[in-house]
């Protein structure tokens, strides 16, 4: 504890006296024109597309069929599912060549298998951020961290009604400070790098491909 005491003592001795005013981040972001649901959906799709993701807007009734078709297109043999209703629904609509399993064992029991044999992971995003084309995942018992990370193809379903305009809106609207999961991950495209001579390349360490299925909101025209 010596280092701790020394460090804090040094800082306390030097810290400015008197209260400083807490910056008001909410005030800064307040008063921006609100975007409609359609605008947010369009923006999310546009930003994700610009980030090299493959985006499709799908219907509530038929999304599983659309995802299944994509799995067939990409030749996915082994698909890993997030546990839950959507995963089960998708499992029932899979193309013949695709075999699906839920992520149900602790990682260390099958690490090599996950790294080497799984072609794709399917997740349902908790919410999304239109301005930056971002998909928010709250990792926990039903959302393993590696599901959206290790397989080379990541398929994400997101409900258009869950799209926020900005990061600030999402953090405030979801009250993140009160309910931080062990790991909250925001994903804004496939894995990439420009570390070699500023040349952009995808699939550095995470998924090389990201497919996003935006679930059209209720009552919206097809």
């Amino acid at each position: 504890m010596n280092a701790r005491t020394n460090m804090l003592n040094k800082l306390r001795a030097a810290a400015p006296r008197g209260a400083s005013t807490m910056p008001d981040v909410a005030a800064y972001y307040a008063g921006r024109p609100a975007a409609t649901l359609a605008e947010r959906t369009e923006r999310l799709a546009a930003e994700l597309t610009a980030s090299h993701a493959d985006v499709r807007v799908v219907s509530r009734a038929g999304w599983a069929v659309d995802v299944a078709r994509a799995l067939e297109e990409k030749g996915v043999r082994r698909l890993l599912l997030q546990s839950g209703a959507e995963g089960q629904l998708l499992a029932g609509a899979l193309p013949a060549g695709t075999q699906a399993a839920e992520f149900s064992r602790p990682l260390e029991d099958w690490k090599a298998e996950l790294f080497e044999d799984v072609d794709a992971g399917f997740t349902v995003a908790d919410c999304a951020i239109a301005a930056t084309g971002t998909l928010v995942h709250l990792c926990g018992p039903h959302m393993p961290r590696t599901l959206s990370l290790v397989p080379p193809l990541h398929l994400v379903l997101v409900d258009a009604a869950r799209i926020y305009a900005t990061l600030f809106d999402a953090a405030a609207g979801e009250n993140w400070p009160a309910r931080m999961p062990s790991n909250l991950v925001m994903i804004s495209g496939p894995s990439k790098t420009a570390d070699i001579q500023q040349t952009l390349a995808y699939g550095a360490h995470g998924p090389a491909r990201l497919m996003v299925f935006i679930l059209r909101a209720e009552g919206e025209a097809a």
Partner: peptide, 13 residues
Amino acid sequence: LISSPRRPGELDG
């Protein structure tokens, strides 16, 4: 955003 190690019931981390 990392706020904790693997919690009971979680499969990785």
